[in-house]
Design a protein around this nucleic acid. Structure first.
Lengths: 154, 154
DNA sequence: GCATGATTGCTATATAATATAGCAATAATA
DNA sequence: TATTATTGCTATATTATATAGCAATCATGC
């Protein structure tokens, strides 16, 4: 007799999505982002804002079109994102020419960037600390070879 | 002279998000999902619907609470999702008891499931065909060891 | 058998990320 | 200078996902 207990419903079928890399990456990414969102809530910062802040810190004076190109955020979505950071006094614009501005972090923005980095590192530990160092390195090596442009259909 | 061309703006700074696994997984997941979304559009199916359809196919008569537990979809979001599939005549409910139903695919649902599988496999090739077989296997091995429950904070 | 608590499905609602279409101003180019 | 490309932006829509709360039903301990 294989099973003489009688739970209401058991799942003796394997999840049919298991064989797909895309499925696993989606689930892991979603969990990791949800976790990061909670951590960043304490700073009143959303994940997409966090990536922009860190990018601007590393590349002061960058124009927002370039931020978007590197982070995969469209112009139309970049505009309100930057406006939101300005309204929180985390960044400011300085005119480069008649239409573009260079984005700079304010002092508050720099402080915030430091806190964001701490949160991101904390999240990396929360999410990937369960992997061995060897696996983390192997994972990083493999995924950083993936060329996103070969995937996107723009 | 290191650079005598004069592009308006070049980025000689490394993307500061590069060191983070979570960042790469997010970008890859987003690209892969966007690609899959386009492929599934031809079937008038969204990715979350696709996962539910394949899960129901593999586990006929499953109740929706269980689907959600396995796929990471909350009860509140499961309800309209199933209702949508019913309205497309892709699945139907059969009462298990006074409050729960077993979800079954209709004939159209089974046909749709087969098409979904083709699209998903096509997408896997599109997204991960650029990796060596060795890397794909290594990637699958590592990410399938990640325990999502250790990440989620519910 | 009955009171209590857990489960299940559901509605309403909110938010984050992301998508398209189109506009106006400016810059780059032939 | 005329044309095209770039840039920033608004408005809007969609998908996925989140919380709060409700009502019906089921399971459990007494």
């Amino acid at each position: 007799m294989r099973n003489n207990s009688k739970p209401r419903q058991i799942l003796d079928t394997v999840n049919p999505l298991e064989p797909y890399l895309g499925y696993h990456l989606r689930r892991i990414s979603a969990a990791s982002m949800a976790s990061l969102t909670l951590l960043l809530n304490e700073l009143d910062i959303r994940p997409s804002e966090a990536t922009v802040i860190l990018f601007v810190q590393a590349t002061p004076g960058v124009r927002q079109s370039l931020i978007g190109k590197h982070l995969g955020i469209r112009r139309a979505n970049m505009a309100p994102l930057i406006a939101g950071l300005e309204s929180k006094s985390l960044c400011r614009k300085e005119a480069l020419d008649g239409r573009s501005s260079g984005i700079q972090l304010t002092k508050a923005g720099v402080k915030c960037a430091a806190k964001i980095e701490v949160k991101i590192r904390e999240n990396e530990e929360r999410c990937f600390g369960q992997l061995t160092v060897r696996d983390r390195k192997a994972l990083m090596k493999i995924i950083s070879t993936i060329n996103l442009e070969l995937i996107s259909l723009e």
